[in-house]
């Protein structure tokens, strides 16, 4: 319950209320998300010479189903099964003291571990880069990957740290006054990327 609450704020707004839906527009719909993921799957295979030693780790909440979908697509293309899991970054956040203690998401590292693997972090929206920074710290405590790469469905800009994605579903230039919401079938019974007006929030600290 609480994990969902956190996840919603992670993508800026959470499932938008009905009134807000009127002011939001979909920039990606289901089929486009599907094609973007298929392309990313191919790019991962290219960049890693056929997916040798690749482990996909999704960042909860919505990075996890994206990691699973990427793993399925890679398997379909190359007939090679790729381990995937989830990596919760709550304990590594830099804004913990700005909000009440948060519920933790699931961390589920595949049995192969991450030592000497090529870890591809998967998230839905890349924003400030702070989530990725936290994820890199979390990985550091879990082992020593051979390399770490980053895949994101949407890159909305406004980075606050020197971090960039290796694989991007869609570059989405946004204003700080806008919010980006990713809806996924697994949680929202619909695939879409929505852009709408930002709600009044103390700071844009939350997003990725």
């Amino acid at each position: 319950m609480c994990a969902q609450k956190r996840a919603k704020s992670d993508v800026g707004e959470g499932s938008p209320a009905r009134a807000d839906l009127d002011r939001t527009r979909a920039v990606l719909e289901g089929p486009e998300i599907g094609r973007a993921l298929t392309r990313i799957a191919h790019e991962v295979l290219e960049r890693t010479k056929g997916g040798e030693g690749v482990t996909l780790l999704g960042i909860p909440t919505r990075g996890v189903p994206l990691a699973r979908r990427l793993a399925e697509r890679i398997e379909r293309v190359e007939d090679r099964s790729v381990p995937w899991g989830s990596l919760d970054i709550t304990m590594y956040r830099d804004d913990l003291r700005l909000a009440p203690a948060r519920a933790l998401g699931r961390t589920d590292i595949p049995a192969e571990g991450i030592d000497d693997r090529v870890v591809v972090l998967v998230d839905d929206v890349l924003f400030s880069g702070r989530t990725v920074r936290a994820a890199l710290d979390a990985l550091n405590d879990l082992g020593r990957p051979r390399a770490v790469q980053l895949a994101t469905l949407v890159d909305r800009g406004h980075r606050q740290l020197p971090i960039r994605a290796d694989y991007v579903g869609k570059n989405l230039p946004t204003s700080l006054r806008e919010s980006v919401t990713v809806l996924l079938d697994e949680f929202d019974s619909r695939d879409a990327v929505l852009v709408g007006p930002a709600k009044a929030r103390p700071a844009p600290e939350e997003e990725h």
Binding site: M1, C2, Y92, A103, L104, D137, D141
Partner: peptide
Amino acid sequence: RDEAILVLDTAKELAQVSGRSVKKYPT
């Protein structure tokens, strides 16, 4: 009830720390 469940769920996640290479969180 919700608070108690939150403690139990959090504990379940944190239990993983003893199986990791660095048995510590910076929190």
